[in-house]
Structures are given as structure tokens and as C-alpha cells.
């Protein structure tokens, strides 16, 4: 007799737990408001990325097409996987002195691991992370980006970089 009672207890106890689970899923079935999927390409207009999102490294330019990069190479040295290449040139100034200036700032997005070291170590705050995230391109070459805009030059009156490797 006891075994029959345990048998029935097992049976109904089991059915009860199953129904409990079905209540949970049933609840969500009749509550379509709990849907959390974002409709991505449609909500592109309203999509707000978080301002700190590490989308890609970029170099802000002001309205006169001036950037802050002094081509000090600290970011290149600190980059763990060689995704930054700073090419500098010697420019002769009006007073006859030659000065190192940024020629091209090459940023290889395909190699970047978004560790944020380059931005942390930059003494001039010349580069920042911007929250762009749509990086898909058809050609890998397009992932090698030049961050300084053509014709841009250094914003004057920046203090000399502290020379540390």
C-alpha cells in the first residue's frame, strides 16, 4: 500500500512541477510586452549607443581641421598588437627650425582588441573612442584607416610631450 502511495505521490508531484514550468512559459506567451528583442536596422534612427562604448579609435578634429596629435608615438609603443602606426615628417617652420609633425596616423581596426591603452596613455588626449559599431566592409583593406583628415595640422600651443617610451 505504501508503495502505491509513494507511486502516486511521485506521479502527481511530478505533474505539479511540470505544470509550474508551463505556467512560466505560458505567462510569457500571453504577455507579448515582455518581448525584449530590438529591431536593429529599423531602430537605427533612435538607437543610442553608450557614450563610452569602445567602437573604434578616432581622432577628433576641430572646426579648423586641427588635431592634437604631436606624433609622439606613445600610443604606437603601448599598443599590444601593433594596430597603430604613426608616420611623422620633419616640417620646416617659418623661423627656420624643423619640427616633427604628424603625417599619417594609421589605425588597423582589424587588429585592434579595444584594450584602451592608447587612449589612456595619450598625453595630449588626441585620440578617443567613438561609439561607431557598424564596421562591416567588403574589403579588408578598408579596415586600415587613416585617422587624421587630409590637410589637417597640429593645433598649436600644446605643451611638449614628456618623452617616455
Amino acid at each position: 500500500m505504501n508503495s502505491i502511495i509513494t507511486y502516486l505521490k511521485e506521479l502527481f508531484g511530478g505533474i505539479k512541477t511540470l505544470l509550474k514550468g508551463m505556467m512560466v512559459t505560458g505567462y510569457y506567451f500571453v504577455h507579448p510586452r515582455s518581448i525584449i528583442t530590438q529591431q536593429y536596422p529599423e531602430n537605427r534612427k533612435t538607437l543610442q549607443m553608450f557614450d563610452r562604448f569602445k567602437g573604434q579609435v578616432s581622432m577628433p578634429h576641430d572646426e579648423n581641421n586641427l588635431h592634437k596629435c604631436t606624433a609622439c608615438n606613445i600610443c604606437e609603443i603601448n599598443c599590444p598588437n601593433g594596430s597603430i602606426e604613426v608616420i611623422s615628417k620633419q616640417v620646416e617652420k617659418a623661423d627656420g627650425k624643423t619640427k616633427k609633425e604628424l603625417d599619417t596616423y594609421i589605425y588597423k581596426l582589424s587588429m585592434c582588441t579595444f584594450c584602451g591603452l592608447c587612449i589612456k596613455v595619450c598625453p595630449q588626449d588626441a585620440i578617443v573612442f567613438t561609439p561607431e559599431f557598424e564596421h562591416a566592409v567588403f574589403n579588408q583593406d578598408k579596415l586600415i584607416k587613416t585617422l587624421n583628415k587630409p590637410g589637417s595640422s597640429l593645433k598649436e600651443k600644446v605643451k611638449e610631450p614628456i618623452n617616455i617610451i
Partner: peptide, 24 residues
Amino acid sequence: FEETTGARLLQSFNCPGGLMNDIH
């Protein structure tokens, strides 16, 4: 995570001596 550290999965938010950034 994304709001504070800038990344969802691989945060790299620590650095020796503290954090990369203050909390949001």
C-alpha cells in the same frame, strides 16, 4: 558594463593601480 567600461564582454577595465575610468 557597456555604459561604464565601454565593452560588453571583454572589458579591460582594470589597470595596475586602479581602473581605466571612473564609474558612469
